[in-house]
Every structure is written in C-alpha cells, then in structure tokens.
C-alpha cells in the first residue's frame, strides 16, 4: 500500500485553513444580510398559528 502520510498532513492543514476562511466569509455575510439585527429571529415565531398565540410566545 502506498504511503499517504504527507498527503494527509497537507490535506488536514489546507482543510483547516479552508474551514476558517469559510467561517469568516459566512460571518461577514450574516452581518451584511442582517442576521444580527432586531428582526433576525423573527422566523421562529412562524410555528404559532394565530396572531395572539404568536404575541404570547414572544413575551413569555
């Protein structure tokens, strides 16, 4: 069997760098797209049907 020690080390380091870069890109995008704004969590109230139930959920 061939020796894959060095290729796997290169793979691991470049993979790690890629992940960090990806995380940074997505962090910047979330800020730009307004995920951290006041309405960023609105979606989670969709599970409640009626308006009242929704408002209740928000306050409790």
């Amino acid at each position: 069997m061939a020796d894959y020690t060095w290729p796997s080390i290169y793979f691991a380091y470049s993979y790690f760098v890629l992940m960090v870069l990806g995380a940074l890109v997505f962090l910047i995008r979330t800020v730009k797209d307004g995920y951290w704004g006041a309405r960023g969590e609105d979606v989670k109230y969709q599970v409640f049907d009626s308006h009242e139930e929704r408002e209740e959920g928000r306050t409790s």
Binding site: G40, E41, K44, Y45, V47, F48, G57, R58, S60
Partner: peptide, 11 residues
C-alpha cells in the same frame, strides 16, 4: 415549541 407553547431559543 408547539407542545410547550414557547418559541425556539435561536433561529
């Protein structure tokens, strides 16, 4: 969230 009538912690 439905069964406890509580909104999810974080979207």
């Amino acid at each position: 969230p439905k069964a406890s009538n509580t909104p999810l912690y974080s979207h």
